[in-house]
């Protein structure tokens, strides 16, 4: 058996791959659900109901999808240039911290749209800085950025703990380690009244469209693609590799940071050490399921959010541990990786 590279990747194959991966994941995890003594049909039906069965469920699913769109986009942008940013989780928290730190005092002095712009800028800068360190370590010293970004996630989480128990601690929180809330006027308006769904999701989709245009229409977009496909050929063709990777790092870290800002200004209102149920790590799954395409990121985020919100409801109804969501997601990631192989290669006997 050997693999032959296909001349060109067909769009159909690329569109089928994620569905095949998700189907394989649901099929494989059915066995685990059956082990809990629950019929997989019942469990999956409950999940669908839990994610889309009511107005509240639907708004919750899209609320969950909003930060995933941005962390997924952050991973997709970086992976496309073969910059392995696994630090989305840390960058998310840096953005959230920046929003909380500036959100209660200084910014209230500014008129609203400007205040939001300042917070978004600060959060993006914080996230970008966190990724620029590993990016520069790789470019300057050849240190693998996978390990450094992963290790920095732990450092940042401790730093968040330090802040919410220290200078940013909310004295009104009855001793709970959480930051002071951002000013009420700064909170993002609701999209659907009487729900947690806010305009953040619209913002996230707009950002996706902008990134898509940048990637497909600008020199920078072409350069990142070239750097990812074949760095040596790209350098030979005159692509400034170092500058491109630094820009990609700033963009990727900034996007994850923005996710943190929006989560604070949207549904949460303050920072805690548990505010992210792994948005950064789930972003990697989102990016892979989207085959690193910005538009695919939106669809993949909704899928991952469906699994998580649905699994919580299903767990309450049937008693199957909600960790099944993480299992489904990780199996989908592995299956997608294998499925992508068949979009770029054909098997010859």
């Amino acid at each position: 058996m050997r693999f032959e590279r296909r001349e060109d990747v067909s769009l159909t194959a690329l569109l089928v791959a994620p569905f095949a991966a998700v189907a394989a994941a649901l099929l494989l995890c059915a066995g685990l659900i059956a082990m809990a003594g629950v019929s997989p049909w019942v469990a999956y039906a409950e999940m669908l109901k839990g994610a889309f069965g009511s107005r509240l469920a639907i708004t919750e699913t899209f609320t969950r999808a909003s930060p995933l769109i941005l962390t997924g986009l952050a991973a997709a942008v970086a992976f496309r240039a073969r910059l392995w940013n696994i630090g989305g989780e840390g960058q998310f928290y840096m953005g959230a911290l920046a929003a909380a730190a500036l959100g209660h005092a200084t910014v209230t002095a500014l008129p609203l749209p400007l205040a939001w712009a300042v917070l978004a800028g600060a959060g993006m800068a914080a996230g970008a800085l966190l990724l620029l360190v590993p990016a520069i370590l790789r470019l300057r010293f050849g240190v693998d950025e996978v390990v450094t970004t992963l290790l920095l996630n732990f450092v940042v989480l401790l730093f968040v703990g330090l802040m919410v128990e220290g200078v940013l601690k909310d004295p009104m929180a009855f001793g709970w380690p959480q930051s002071v809330p951002v000013a009420a006027g700064l909170r993002l308006p609701d999209l659907v009244p009487r729900s947690r769904l806010h305009v953040g999701i619209v913002l996230a989709v707009v950002v996706v469209l902008v990134v898509w245009l940048v990637q497909s229409r600008t020199v920078f977009g072409a350069e990142t693609r070239a750097a990812g496909l074949n760095p040596r050929a790209a350098a030979f063709a005159g692509v400034p590799l170092t500058a491109t990777l630094v820009k990609v790092a700033a963009l990727s870290g900034g996007l994850a940071g923005l996710a943190g800002v929006i989560e604070v200004l949207g549904p949460v209102g303050y920072v805690t050490t548990t505010m992210s149920p792994g948005f950064g790590y789930a972003g990697i799954v989102v990016a892979m399921l989207a085959a690193l395409h910005p538009l695919g990121v939106v669809a993949a985020s909704v899928f991952v959010a469906t699994i998580f919100v649905g699994a919580d409801a299903m767990s309450r109804a049937t008693g199957v541990p909600s960790f099944i969501a993480d299992v489904i997601m990780s199996v989908a990631l592995l299956a997608m990786l294998a499925a992508l192989l068949f979009t770029t290669y054909r098997v010859r006997r």
Binding site: F3, L32, P321, F323, D326, L334, L341
Partner: peptide, 23 residues
């Protein structure tokens, strides 16, 4: 044998093995 990205596969295994353990 499949020659897939060792980075992505490894991270996938980490997510899978820990999720399976917790489940």
């Amino acid at each position: 044998p499949l020659g897939l990205s060792q980075h992505v596969s490894g991270l996938g295994i980490t997510l899978f093995a820990s999720a399976l353990a917790y489940y």
